[in-house]
Design a protein around this nucleic acid. Structure first.
Lengths: 152, 152
DNA sequence: TTTATATTTATAATAATTATAGTTTAAGTT
DNA sequence: AACTTAAACTATAATTATTATAAATATAAA
């Protein structure tokens, strides 16, 4: 964890931003909850546990900053709130998501499944791809099992 | 156009909803501006030209309803507003988008480029895919040309 | 230490969306 | 055709997420 904090600190410094205590606390929350997809409000509440004096606006600004530096990705699953997701170290692209329409769970796929598709887009549409957002909606393994049980 | 209105009318009736004049006016706007990605506000202003007495809340409710019936898809390009996009007739899946980070233009791709990827997700993750959202961020043809001119 | 700048807190403002109350419209029934 | 009922509508208020502002604080540079 310290290693990653350190890297992020350097990324900030390289653009002459500082890693203030508030920003560090925010980053720590994101690292600790790496598998979740927290909203700004969620992050705020968690950061408050470490640093009760922090303001909501600071959390928003920090997330915005991290987002610009591509340290986090801002996503929207259509429920009206933005969610923030740490990029894996060294990842060029945003990872994919599997959203279950039954239970609402969100699973991540880190493999880049889109290399071929991006080539097609590049060649056939002349569009120079920089990044992507891919979300599948459907039924997760667990809910499939439940449904089968229920109907048997 | 009348043909598609008629189909939508039937889809509504089949779930015992009515195609009220307000709903019809809204659908007409969506059909006329099929290539655009209108926000609820955009739709409201356009519908007002046809039916000045319509209320914003009705537009929201209509879009929500059309969205539930999968007649339109609700998307979010990360600018804080939801946008509404008509599905092509008979399309099982949502189409893809190319969002240009330079000029903000949005292009559509109707081909389903994800069939192979969906098979992988299905087989390797056991996730039963029902639909997807795929957006590429990058630089469109036009902006690539401009950039090349500017730098030469 | 002094100065300048970046960042923060607390709060107000804005913008998108949703909820509510009362009214209108339409469909089905006698 | 009048009556009844439920759906849908308008107008507006309320809510929620996010952004902007002003004053205070912290940090780095001179």
């Amino acid at each position: 964890m310290e290693h990653r904090i350190d890297r992020i600190k350097k990324q900030l410094h390289s653009q002459s931003y500082k890693l203030t205590p508030q920003r560090e606390a925010t980053v720590r929350v994101l690292l600790e909850r790496e598998d979740d997809h927290l909203s700004a409000e969620d992050v705020y509440l968690l950061v408050k546990e470490k640093a009760p004096e922090i303001g909501l606006a600071t959390v928003y600004r920090t997330l915005e900053l991290l987002s610009e530096l591509k340290i986090v990705d801002k996503i929207n699953f259509g429920d009206g709130v933005s969610r923030y997701d740490l990029r894996k170290e060294g990842a060029k692209h945003f990872h994919h998501h599997l959203v279950c329409t039954e239970c609402g769970s969100v699973e991540e796929i880190e493999d880049d499944l889109l290399e071929d598709v991006e080539k097609i887009v590049q060649n056939e549409w002349g569009f120079q791809v920089k990044d992507h957002r891919l979300t599948f909606h459907g039924i997760c393994k667990q809910c499939q099992a439940v449904t089968m049980n229920a109907s048997s």
